[in-house]
Design a binder for these strands. Structure first.
Lengths: 189, 189
DNA sequence: GCAAATGCTTAAAGGTTGTAAGTAAGCGAG
DNA sequence: CTCGCTTACTTACAACCTTTAAGCATTTGC
């Protein structure tokens, strides 16, 4: 019995890759074990249980997404920053649907603040620096931006825009135009 | 063996109720059968398989949501219509998280157009009548509205707004203000 | 080179989906 | 009213997934 060299990290990456292929929902401990050529029970030495594995994939995805977003944001401001950030977000979700789905699972407060989840709202706030919004409008705008990005990507992935001939890319670009416009002209309370 | 009186409709409603209680994800054929006091196999006489059941719950939810939205929209126009529609959407998701989750599953094209899914974009278009947008801006705006509503509700449900002291209700109201503002002042291409 | 730690296997219990075949209850017609 | 058909449900079973416990084998460290 040659050793397969399973580690929590390799397991997490394999689970993420598998999720992108067959859907996050369909990733099982058994399928993962088959991929490593070991019995399912062997994985429990590296990972607490199936939920622990899911959380690890979620944290991996959040980290990758934050890194990509940070790279997109570097050296840009205003609308350019908004568009770059949004595109980084959307392209990640399209290239890695399984990872993106993983990133949406509920994390307990402790895990969430420690993880890259906090970095995301920090970056969104960084975009807003170019629009000069006071609190609490800034928080509201962060939530609106995040909602629109996530909602659009989520609906697009679920096939919600396939019924109309209008290209999803075009609507996306116009949605970003609209967001930029409303941030530059934020309505008074 | 007294008959339990299982039908596809009652099964669907029970599944929807159970989903609201324990999460759509956790609804199993077995748990449902236990609720009816019958063996799991009995359910397969009324429903093709687990996926069929999920689709039925999705269609139920889409129908209920469409009905609630239509009621909210009746006799309103402009921002009032926008706010009423959005609130109907959000309140349904909060009252029926399991049903709402069900409504997000992918439906094949045939099922989707036959179902209430089409009615939803029709209603969103009805809201936009008050803002007088030409095509294809109208389609883009429909997609943006739907994305923002779904994204906000989705993130809120997943606990994404619990890290900040700012009330989710307040940000929601301001987000609707912003949407109204950008629809009244839609940026040119 | 031997002992301890580590990595994987076998074994087994318990839960889930789904099919097939058997039984019992209800219903309609003669 | 009872015979027989349809319908509803049960039992039985196969396949798969999760997770724990115990055992063996391979590395590693002293």
């Amino acid at each position: 019995m040659a050793r397969a060299g399973v580690t929590a990290e390799r397991l997490t990456r394999a689970a993420a890759d598998l999720a992108d292929e067959i859907g996050f929902h369909n990733v099982t401990v058994s399928a993962l074990a088959r991929g490593f050529g070991v019995k399912p029970a062997a994985l429990y030495a590296h990972v607490k249980d199936a939920q622990d594995l899911r959380v690890r994939v979620a944290l991996l995805a959040l980290g990758e997404l934050a890194e990509r977003a940070a790279r997109a944001l570097a050296g840009r401001a205003g609308k350019e920053a908004l568009v770059a950030f949004a595109n980084a977000y959307r392209s990640y979700a399209k290239e890695h649907p399984g990872r993106y789905a993983a990133a949406q699972i509920e994390l307990d407060w402790e895990t969430a603040v420690t993880s890259a989840a906090g970095r995301h709202s920090d970056m969104t706030r960084a975009i807003l620096r170019g629009y000069d919004l006071p609190e609490p409008d800034q928080t509201d705008a962060v939530r609106m931006l995040h909602s629109t990005f996530h909602g659009y990507v989520s609906l697009e992935t679920a096939g919600g825009f396939r019924h109309s001939p209008r290209a999803a890319d075009a609507s996306w670009a116009r949605t970003l135009d609209a967001l930029d416009a409303v941030l530059r002209n934020w309505p008074p309370a």
